[in-house]
Design a protein around this nucleic acid. Structure first.
Length: 507
RNA sequence: GAUUCCUUAGCUCAGUUGGCUAGAGCACCUCACUUUUAAUGAGGGGGUCCUGGGUUCGAGCCCCAGAGGAAUCACCA
């Protein structure tokens, strides 16, 4: 612990003592009777013919003290609460009406530091320049700030000075970032709105929100390296989940017609501007539906969510505008590859695909089967070109071990991914519910593993057992919440949509 | 994991070819000021130049190693 204090920290600690010397508790326990917020006041002010404010004549608000402009016996200051900032007018003889002017001359002018929490009671008025302000009649100290916050200033043209921008400091000390950068707060408010609108949509659809294990004995349901841990009492290895798919399907087996879960997944892989070791997925499964229904529902869901978050259902990423209004373009994987590369791969075997990859300058290795090769071609040559929401459908069976075979196209499965701004946002299937087929698919995955594919899926006997009891036809989908948030808030880095992105240990 | 770049006051940043006591704005301290708003005016204080080595008469600057961060790439959602 570094106890070397800066000059400003020493001053604040001295001020703390002096506040106590005045007989004022700098960290009071009692609740403070807030009855208004900065935003409410600014939005709801009413004035008479002379321009005098007629409402909000007895307001009580609380927040951080964020700026101070002292002009002798009167001062202007700014109070920041969770809704925003509002100007305060503090005059000496109002807050210290008697002989003793210490409350103004000492407490307000000297001992109150930027960042301290205060409560104010007073009435709302407009200054000569028309700024909506609170004329403070009573000031209460609510909490001392011992460290100086970065002071971000804005001029009348909206230019920002000395903004707190260092990404490392912003992510490590997100509380500071949130305090001084209002646009950061907005991103997280939008994230919250996004999640709550998803939840509302799924609840209205009649689905039940469920929770499934994060600690698992077998890390199934996706292809990724897991975090490994250990349970002491059971003395057994455990894994943090990389997916919850197999558990949600077990619940469909158990008789729930529709379930969803919004939760954290953990993947022990690289970190970059689109990957964090823990991330949030929303998955839902509905019995007696297929992937066609799921595409329609996904369009409705995303249109609803996008409107809830952005207002008009559109978002800007760089110079691109993305419109979430459905219907979205639907393109089979083969047609997409044909459209963007000019090659018809529908009849190609593994050898033909290998030589096509060579022609297209796509790197391959021996572990890649036919499905993986097709996935590579799509990923390299098509995916990044799909900016507006586009459903890519009908994937090769080899790369979709949990998906039902296509009802009419041999070698394909009933699966779609939703691509937006060149990235996968959702992945959905008509779920495979034939236990014998499912066992064969797992076994095919084991074969891929033997060829060296380290992302292949392990076999889950209990999941197979549940399917053997019988699972209704079901469609399911997974949507990456962080990525969707990035899209809807115009962010290009996942760290900007996570409160506390993973960082190396501070030294 | 690879490559490139970055790290100087609480914050944002200058810092010349290696050369006096390392600078600016905001913030902080002192004084003045009862409708200001990037308040203003006058004065003042504040530095582990990321860390550790090395070269040199002399290092914020050059060299080596390390830490942390960012971007790009690989893998992934």
């Amino acid at each position: 612990m570094n106890m070397q204090l800066s000059e400003q920290e020493i001053v604040r600690r001295e001020n703390l003592d002096k506040i106590r010397d005045l007989g004022i508790e700098p960290f009071p326990a009692a609740m403070y009777p807030v009855n208004a917020t900065a935003a409410e006041i600014k939005a709801g002010v009413e004035t008479d013919d002379e321009g005098a404010v007629t409402n909000f004549q007895e307001v009580c608000l609380a927040g951080r003290f964020m700026s101070k402009r002292v002009m002798g016996k009167a001062s202007f200051a700014e109070l920041q609460d969770s809704s925003g900032r509002i100007q305060l007018y503090v005059s000496r003889d109002d807050i210290a009406p008697g002989e003793d002017k210490a409350l103004y001359n000492t407490l307000f002018k000297k001992l109150l530091d930027l960042g301290d929490f205060i409560g104010v009671k007073g009435f709302v008025f407009k200054t000569r320049v028309g700024e909506i302000s609170v004329h403070v009649k009573e000031l209460t100290f609510l909490g001392k700030s011992l460290r100086p916050l970065p002071v971000v200033k804005k001029d009348e043209d909206g230019n920002v000075y000395d903004s707190f921008t260092d990404p490392e400091l912003r992510y490590r000390q997100r509380y500071v970032d949130l305090t001084v950068n209002p646009e950061v707060r907005e991103i997280f408010k939008k994230r919250s709105k996004l999640i709550s609108s998803i939840r509302r949509f799924l609840d209205d659809l009649g689905l039940m929100e469920v929770e499934t294990p994060v600690l698992q004995n077998i890390h199934g349901g996706a292809s990724a390296r897991p975090f490994k841990t250990h349970h002491n009492t059971l003395d057994t290895p455990m894994y943090m989940r990389i997916a919850n798919e197999l558990y949600l399907k077990r619940l469909i087996v158990g008789g729930f017609d529709g379930v969803y879960e919004i939760g954290k997944m953990f993947r022990n892989e690289g970190m970059d501007r689109t990957h964090n070791p823990e991330f949030t997925m929303m998955e839902f499964y509905v019995a007696y539906k297929d992937y066609e229904w799921m595409m329609d529902t996904t369009e409705e869901l995303l249109e609803t969510v996008a409107k809830a978050v952005t207002g008009d259902g559109k978002t800007k990423i760089g110079d691109k505008e993305i419109d979430f209004k459905g219907p979205y373009r639907r393109l089979t994987m083969y047609d997409a590859i044909k459209e963007y590369t000019g090659h018809d791969i529908s009849g190609m075997d593994e050898a033909a695909l290998l030589s096509l990859c060579k022609e297209l300058h796509i790197e391959t290795d021996k572990s890649m089967g036919r499905g993986k090769l097709i996935d590579e071609i799509f990923g390299e040559k098509v995916e990044h070109l799909l900016i507006q929401p586009t459903f890519i459908t009908d994937y090769p069976v080899e790369m979709s071990p949990l998906t039902k075979k296509h009802r009419s196209k041999a070698g394909l499965v009933e699966r779609f991914e939703l691509i937006i701004n060149g990235k996968e946002v959702a992945n959905a299937y008509s779920e495979l519910n034939d236990p014998i087929d499912q066992r064969e698919r797992f076994e095919a995955q084991l074969e891929l593993a033997k060829r060296g594919d380290d992302e292949s899926m392990p076999l889950d006997e209990d999941f197979l057992r549940s399917l053997e009891y019988g699972m209704p036809p079901t469609s399911g989908i997974g949507i990456g919440i962080d990525r969707l948030t990035m899209l809807l808030t115009g962010q290009t880095s996942i760290q900007e949509v996570l409160f506390f992105p993973q960082m190396r240990n501070e030294v």
